[in-house]
Structure formats: C-alpha cells, structure tokens
Amino acid sequence: MSTFLNLMVYGLADGAILALAALGFVLIYKATSVINFAQGEFLLVGAYMFYTAFVVLQLPLVLAVVFGVVIATLIGVLVERLILRPMVGENPISIIMVTIGLSIFLRSVVQMFYGTRPQSQPAVLPTGSVNVLGATIPVNRLWVLLIAAVVLTAFTVFFRRSRHGIAMRAVADDQQAAMTMGISVRRIFAMAWALAAVSALIAGILLGDIYAVDQNIAAFGLLVFPVVILGGLDSVPGTIVGGLTIGLLKQFTSGYLDPGLATVIPYVVLVLILLVRPYGIFGETRIERV
C-alpha cells in the first residue's frame, strides 16, 4: 500500500509537469497547425534560463521567475517571427523539419554555454516529507501538483473567459473568419508561441527542481508526444488526462515491473492509440451537420 501511494504521488507529479509541457505543444498546434518538435528543448531552455537567473545572477526567487517568463516570451515570439512565419503556407513536412532543426539548435546552444554536466541548483520547493498511511511522501511533489493545477486552471480560464483567449480559439477554428473580425492572426500566432514557451518554462523549472538541471530535461520533454497523441493533438483537457495517465503508467511500470520497461511503455501507448483512436481521447473531430 505504501509503495502504491508513493508511486502514485510520483506519477501524478511527473504527469502534471507533462501536462504543462503538452499544453504548450497543443497551443501551438491548435492555433498555428505547426507540430513543434522543439517543445522538449523549450523545457530545457526554460530550466536553464531560470538557473541562470537564480544561481548565476543570484536574483531572488520571484525575480528569477519573472526573468524566466520574460526571456521565454521573447524566445517564443522570436521563434515565431524569424523561423515559423517565413514558413507559412509551406509543406507541413518542411515545417516539421524546421522545428527539428530548431530543437537541435536550442540543445546545442545550451550545451555551448553550460556544458553537459548537471548544474547544481538549490532546492526551490520545500523539501522534506510527510507520512500518509505509512507511505513517505516527498513534499516537493505535492507542491509540483499544486503549482501545475494552478497554472493549468489559469490557462483554462484564459481560454474560456478572456477576449484574447477566445480570439485564439477562433483563429484555431477558422482563420479567415477570424480576420474578418479584426483579429490579427499574426499576433495570435506570436501569442501562442509565447504562451507555449512560458508553460514550458514552468514545466522546466519544476523538473529542474525535483530532478536535476541537465540535458535529460529535453528527453523528458519528448514524452509530450505520447501525451498529446493520447489526449488529442488539439485538446487542452486532453493534455491533463494524457499527462497524468502517462506519468502514472511510467511510475507504476517502473515500481512494479521494470524501470527499463518504464521508458518504453509511453511509446507503446503511443503506437496503440494511433492504431485504435488516431485523434486521441479528446481530439476534435470535424463537426458534420446532417
């Protein structure tokens, strides 16, 4: 029982971070129809930006986060403006290749400045553990869950209630019609990339804190693919369900079966889902009126 609880909390924390990472991916796909293979690197860059601010520049925590958000927004907007906008209307395969190139570029830049060794960063989230029903639960995982829940709720409210959020969904639905409403599609694209970079930054900071600030963050980011295929490429609720499912599945497999199998299992799910339900659990199907 205590192992089960333990694995569950670890799995949920991993899953919550995955949901944040996948949210950025879904935002970009929904608004701009670009499949962003550099999402994992956005996490990596986010984690290192925070590290730079918090450890290298020794800014206070709040300022370090603000610094990270500003840089992430900037990177998101620049990537859209300089790399993706010239590609508008090009073949989707070319666009995918460009994002793969971007991922290699971002990873190399991080290696160039910080090397490949893990960086030591003092714990940001409270450490220690609590005892629940005989299981030792680390407090920082609970904080990860809480923070991810708050951020995901904030994003959901933004999409449901705010003028810009609704405009983003409108652009995702029908670009030309959105243009006739005076919605600037370019600005919405830039906003999607910026928000994706910010959600990746938060995921990156959390990952860096509970694991380590190193290159593995990008590998963890690769897990967004099983998550979004499971949840649906264009579904925000899907990222949460998909993220938690993959996170739990990984931890349970690792704890009860074999840690090696745990790295493979998300991709087994990916293949199975593609076979059975290619648009995912919550993926939007075309509305056909009869």
Partner: peptide, 26 residues
Amino acid sequence: MSLCMEGRHVFEHLSVAENLVAGAYT
C-alpha cells in the same frame, strides 16, 4: 466595416456567446 463571409463561417467549436465575443474583438 464587417464582412459576413460566404458559407457563414461561424466558429464551429465555440459557443454562440463565444462567437459573439470573438466578433467584438476590436
């Protein structure tokens, strides 16, 4: 100026109220 495009082009996945809010973007 406002244009109603041919074939209506409502935002299919948005609710009626959200469609109207999107229309008031400016």
